[in-house]
Amino acid sequence: MKGLLSPVDPFEILSRYLMSRSLFRKRDNTVKYQAFMPPPNLKLSVFRTSNLSNSQIWEIGRQIASSQCPPRNLYGRADLQALEVLKCGLQIDPDDNPPRHANIIGWPQEKSEQKLKAMKLAEAAKLVLVQP
């Protein structure tokens, strides 16, 4: 798949792949804030999925899940407009490694602040579940 090194447009869609059932609520199809909590290196991994077909978007997710050791199940993804990230005072670093990959950066050190920002991202995100 062709990579993307261009700056992220605010209206681009960023996808966060969900490899645990505990990261979303099935009862109202919403994303939990834990899906957007940053790891210790404060780089939250996402993929730039605008202008890709649905099957191409899922293909990226399946590759990510199968590359885990042991391989993980892919349950769905949380789609988010880049603008929502910027509104939270965070930035997007498009490293294109692997292709179309980017990191959400600029996270505060305090966990409570991280939680609040993750909640706002989860509120703005759209849950898309893998079809059985």
């Binding site: 490899m19 645990s20 059932r21 790891p39 991994s45 990510i64 899940a65 885990q68 993980r72």
Partner: peptide
Amino acid sequence: ECSHDNWDGY
């Protein structure tokens, strides 16, 4: 679901 490391794949 979460009793092992890397339960979220990240």
